[in-house]
Write a protein that binds this DNA or RNA. Structure first.
Lengths: 209, 209
DNA sequence: TAGATTGTTAATCGATTAACAATC
DNA sequence: TAGATTGTTAATCGATTAACAATC
């Protein structure tokens, strides 16, 4: 596997490839050509070959790609067998739904703690984890060393809390608050999810016609 | 407002501009230069000027952009004052959270019905709407003509249900099922949201270093 | 007027597509 | 071997950046 730098657009396509290859595997398809896969995924065959070549020639001329092997390679690149420890902060509607709905394990992560500032929630269970009060955050982080946090908190609290978490050693954020985190330290990874932006884009496309 | 075609990358940036301009307005900033805004948003000033010029010169040389006016223009383009009627299908964890958490009104949409196949949920309230059984979907659509649907259903049900909804007259989908909808009709708008892909990308970036 | 900052054109950069020789 | 399909280079396309004249 050549150690080239993989460009952002390619990385963002990897999870999608991984999903489609998983579907093919479930359909017991053993091999697939770039042309066929392109058709399924709505991409060009050329792009698929370019993408797969970023991490070494995994196809065979005249044959195509071995579905299972290719999926494993992509899974390895994405690190699906890892167990990045994560915490979730803000156990409101959305926080609980994410804790329950997203399969962290399948994606190389593990949710090890859930926190909420509302003391009434303390002790109640979500996704087989007890919700903990914010007062215990510091000691929990010192003890269990989570690497990243899911932020499901109001936007006004996000920036300050993120900075605090950075000081506690966290290096990644999956941010659902309606606020673009800006962390000065470039080593900190931020994945902002803006559901509202997504809905607005859909709404735009709907009247645009 | 010139009627040029606005490219997809620009459209996808509009909601973000809209948010930042909203923040500036809240901070009572009246005008802002492309340079200042660029700094705040982590973009280049050049890109901002290019983007804003897609829909007509709204700046003033030597002065910058009037925050309130610019925000209104972008809001108009995005159609925030519209009321696209939408339904939500699948009132599980995620469906309920989206119904409760996403502010449809602020984004030009209105959630007018929630459906779930579990008869036990029928009648219970979510986001001040009663959950309705799937049996009533047809007549509801005929009567209230929703234009788009939020799909919070398992991936195996997604494709079939989407096709049914198209036959009932819906033309847009905000799809949270772990499946890329493929609608043959190009007039149908699909916005696939893959939270899992987003998490995997974060996880990748975390070990990549 | 002088200073600032846009609107807009031209240059650059990067990503996608096309083409085809290599090879299974 | 012949057919298929990759790996890879070159061509194209589009988006971003740079530059600067226009103008408030």
């Amino acid at each position: 596997m050549s150690k080239e730098v993989i460009s952002t657009p390619v990385i963002r396509r990897l999870p999608r490839y991984y999903r489609f290859l998983g579907e093919l595997e479930r359909e017991q398809v053993e091999r697939i050509s770039s042309r066929e896969l392109a058709q399924r995924m709505g991409l060009s065959a050329s792009q698929i070959r370019q993408d797969f070549n970023c991490f070494g020639g995994f196809g065979q001329q005249g044959y195509g790609y071995h579905v299972k092997a290719l999926r494993e390679v992509i899974g390895e690149i994405l690190g699906v067998s890892g167990r990045t420890p994560m915490i979730l902060i803000g156990a409101g509607n959305l926080g609980k739904a994410i804790a329950a709905h997203v399969d962290f394990h399948k994606r190389g992560c593990e949710l090890i703690g859930i926190f909420d500032s509302n003391p009434l929630l303390a002790g109640t269970m979500t996704a087989s984890l007890p919700i903990m009060p914010m007062e215990t955050l510091d000691s929990f982080c010192q003890q269990h060393k989570p690497q990243a946090a899911v932020l499901c908190i109001p936007k006004d609290a996000a920036q300050q809390l993120a900075e605090k978490l950075v000081s506690l050693g966290l290096i990644g954020f999956w941010n659902f608050s309606h606020f673009d985190l800006r962390i000065s330290n470039p080593d900190i990874i931020v994945e902002n999810v803006h559901l509202g932006d997504s809905l607005m884009t859909l709404a735009y496309c709907l009247h645009d016609k």
